[in-house]
Amino acid sequence: MEELILSARGLNLYYGENHALKDISIDIPERRITALIGPSGCGKSTFLRTINRMNDLIPNVKITGSLTYRGQEIYAPEQDVTDLRKRIGMVFQKPNPFPMSIYDNVAYGPRTHGTRNKVKLDEIVEESLRGAAIWDEVKDRLKKSALGLSGGQQQRLCIARALAVKPDVLLMDEATSALDPISTAKIEDLAAELKNDYTIIMVTHNMQQAARISDNTAFFLLGELVEFGETEQMFSMPQDKRTEDYITGRFG
């Protein structure tokens, strides 16, 4: 039996009057890639951002129900948000390296969390860049601005930046949608490798991508979780008519 890492029970989210997530219940296993699919506006990104509490930044958000990470309520009053976000890293849709050097980008997280030792930082930076399969491309230009990298390299740098704080879970919000096919393939390979050490939850609008690399898939529609199961199962034998319609391309 695989370990569960994240569980939602009856999770509802409102943006003011707008009921954006409706009664979501889901169990996400450890060290697997879970893909969240669905048409735009279905709530998949909202759900992803609920996991590391990035929705806190939006005014008038109300959440009810339960969402736990390793048995801990994510929205409990005593929850330390910075610590939660350190454990649950995130990679965004658009590559967003800081306008600093490559080194400083990766070192940003560890420095924030109190690592000042130069030798230690060097170690973490190298390890993270290797982990994101970009070390060889940037090792000679660590002090150069990260904005000089290509889009695909920037995105892998952002993954390295997320890895540098040694997270447990990695959230990827359509992390390849702004990239060319070759860079996309590189990131997919990377994700497949990263799942040996990390739990990955990825939002994607690309169903082939979900089918290629994910272990489990969750299908969202209009704020509801329609179906959740093993990817192979879901793509070959969807249980729900709506899932079938979506993956066969009848809408979306």
Binding site: L57, K86, M90, F98, G109, T112
Partner: peptide, 26 residues
Amino acid sequence: PREYEEASLALGATEIETYFRVTVPA
């Protein structure tokens, strides 16, 4: 850009840390 701040927050920095270490240098 808001994305810089989000990246910093997602790494576990507080808002103030984000403003002074990312927004201000940018």
